[in-house]
Amino acid sequence: MGVTQAGRQSWLFEPRPGLIGMAAVAGKSEAGGPLASGYDKVYEDFRIGQKSFEKAEQQMLQDACTLALQNAELTAADIDLFLAGDLLNQITVSNFTARNLGIPHLGLFAACSTSTQGLALAGLLVASGAARRVLAASGSHTCTAERQFRYPNEYGCQKPPHTTSTVMAAGAGVVAAEPAPIQLAAATVGRVVDKNITDPFNMGAAMAAAAADTILTHLHDTGRSPQEYDFIITGDLGQVGREIAWEVLQQQGFVYDKTRFVDCGCLIYGGDKRFFSGGSGCGCAASSFYGYFCRRLREGKMRRILLAATGALLSPTSQQQKESIPGISHAVTVERV
């Protein structure tokens, strides 16, 4: 196993770590969207039989991890390291899941880009020989995020059309040294990019510049052209953020088919206006990738994709103190061999 630094920000894996098992779980609203075929489990309500929304979110992440292990035909004892993150204060959802799984744990936070932060690190750790098998996971719940970052769930405020809606979903994958048809080829660690956006309803705009920056850096560092990718996928920019990112990329000489430049946030609800500009949250890119996109890769319908999950690095306090919203994006190239 080996890893080579390419440029300042990227890692090339050779031989490549394999993605040997993965799972995605989601709520009923997400299952009504076009990515539904990728979900291993769908929940009928927000509480899923738990006393609080926080417990429900933890149950979701746990289910995603358990199902990913099942799909890899492994148990928790076979995994060396658990990399997970979520949106809640002190990432309790991930920590409590790690407590229950009993796997040595490193908690992550990169807001909604945690899914690719985890996947990139899992690739690095496996490729470098620091771990044989790593479980990477992240998730989010609309009701817990809403109350932590915005208002109580039943508060009747009027949201603007450009806001996004946190998804109720989670995804997990097992990255291992064993050969597998789905492999991690390269990863890029993103820079924090701040375009002085202060509107907390416009996180797509806050993250779009970071997404474009990471995508261009990844292509440059790996020496690949966009045309070599079946899809270039951003995390949760929503319709507003996707358009901005596309424009920024165009201005940097990025030539690609726009229909293949897709965003998990735009896809997850299929443009349903009840969810405004689209979905967001740690679970958005995680469930879309480990669910729908991995399924398409397994079926051989896609050969190479670039996943650039995106995160808005704000806190309720920074937002109220009128700080701008920094964005970040981490990217991973995943291939089907």
Binding site: R191, D194, K195, N196, A209, D213, S324, P326
Partner: peptide
């Protein structure tokens, strides 16, 4: 691009 907040 500069990492610090700047009006663009």
């Amino acid at each position: 691009m500069n990492g610090k907040p700047q009006t663009d």
